[in-house]
Computed example of a mutant assay.
Amino acid sequence: MLFAVLFSLAIASLPAAPQDGSADDEPAACKEDWRSDACRIATFDRTLGDLQVTAIEDEAATGAEIYRVRALTAWGRPLPVISFERRLGQSPLVVATDAGGGQMSTRVGGRVWSRVVSASAFADRDLVPEPPAPKQGDIEEIIVCADGSTVMAEMANAPARFGDHRAVRRKLGHSCEDQPVVAYADLLAQMAAEVLPACAALNRSGEGFYTLRNCLALRGDTLAAADLMNALDDAPFEERMERPWTQWLGVSSEPARLDWAGQVVEQSGFTPPGSAKPTIAAFMAERVSALTNLNFYENLVGAETASRGWVTGQITYQTSREDDAQTLVADYRQVWTKKNGYWGLESWLVEPFTPAAP
């Protein structure tokens, strides 16, 4: 029989460091059936402590009106938690929180709040399944969904309709399913990304949850940090030529310094590609060529002022292309300054490389 297989891919994940864990950490419900709703709810509940989020039942007991969505990637990693809140005696606000300790909040106006409330009326409903499509000869269509995310909407003191006296409403769903809870989670994530000032300043496109994850990596003067993050888009981390690195590093009239685990390159201002003088760009292009599977992971982007910022992250590479090759990892910190409207590297410190944890 001929099968037409359609792949529906959910929103893509940015590179992330591996998560530690073992079978002993697995909730009891997941040991019985990892596909069950009980397992997915237990997995979500386990993220509450990591994300410092109050249980929805405790929120309901305070009298607060809460509309909250959470999501886990296909690999069980938590995405930012978005909560639209109206507490007693306070104006409505939105709060976004992530597992890395980042949190942002801002007041929201009546139009945004009304949309959150009205859309919630259907968030915990189930759609009536569509009848199966009739077969066309010997061709059968199979829909395969890969890398989907699990979402949960939780609402406190938020009746869905007149006469609804439930203090808490909760609905679990999956991005591969055509259910209202998935659309509601996407809506709240997108609205949060639009109303939080630093998030709205980011150029990085993508779904609301992933925009928020980038945004929650900002520290200090978050508007300036967002400007720096925008400037560092399209990094030439796979480029073996000097010119793309020269453009990205933006070294101009001021000196710049790279310390790559003890190998130091000092540059006394702008130096064109191909110069006989040593440059940071030439060194980095050589590193990309020489090291196997060299990868750069940006963790946090911060700013002290509108013209001075920093980036922290990790660099990894493998000792060879063999199957038993060892992975080495090092932390790094960059300092950037902005002059004449452009960001340029001031310093880049790469710590000594050590074997990565298994």
Rank of each mutant, 00 (worst) to 15 (best):
L300D: 03
A200P: 07
D98N: 15
D186I: 07
A183C: 06
A330H: 04
Q326P: 00
N203A: 13
A200E: 11
N340I: 03
D37A: 15
A330L: 02
D37I: 08
V69D: 09
A28E: 14
F209W: 15
P352H: 02
G206L: 13
L127W: 08
T312R: 10
A192H: 12
M155P: 00
S253N: 13
D178S: 08
S105N: 07
V95Q: 08
R68L: 10
V116R: 12
H174F: 14
V182D: 05
T222V: 11
S275F: 10
S83Y: 09
W113A: 08
S91I: 03
T316H: 00
D227C: 05
A29I: 04
P358S: 04
G89V: 13
A10M: 03
E140T: 15
G208I: 10
R70F: 06
S83V: 11
E346W: 00
H174D: 10
S91A: 12
W260I: 00
G110P: 12
A226D: 07
S91E: 14
R169Q: 13
T354Q: 04
S289L: 01
G250K: 10
S253R: 14
T246A: 13
Y297N: 08
V251N: 07
V182G: 12
A261H: 03
F84W: 12
N214E: 15
I66D: 09
V108N: 14
S22V: 02
D323W: 01
P180C: 05
P15M: 04
L249C: 06
R68F: 04
T150L: 15
I315W: 09
A60R: 01
E57A: 14
S320A: 04
Y297I: 00
A60M: 07
E26H: 02
T292M: 02
T62D: 03
F122M: 11
A55R: 14
I315A: 09
Q52G: 10
T312M: 13
V81N: 09
S114C: 02
Q314S: 12
E65I: 06
M152G: 08
A99Q: 13
P236A: 05
L258Q: 12
D37T: 06
G262K: 01
R77E: 15
L349N: 11
G63K: 07
D45Q: 14
A306H: 02
A55M: 10
A225M: 01
R70C: 04
L294Q: 02
D178T: 05
F3E: 12
V81S: 14
T211C: 01
P27K: 01
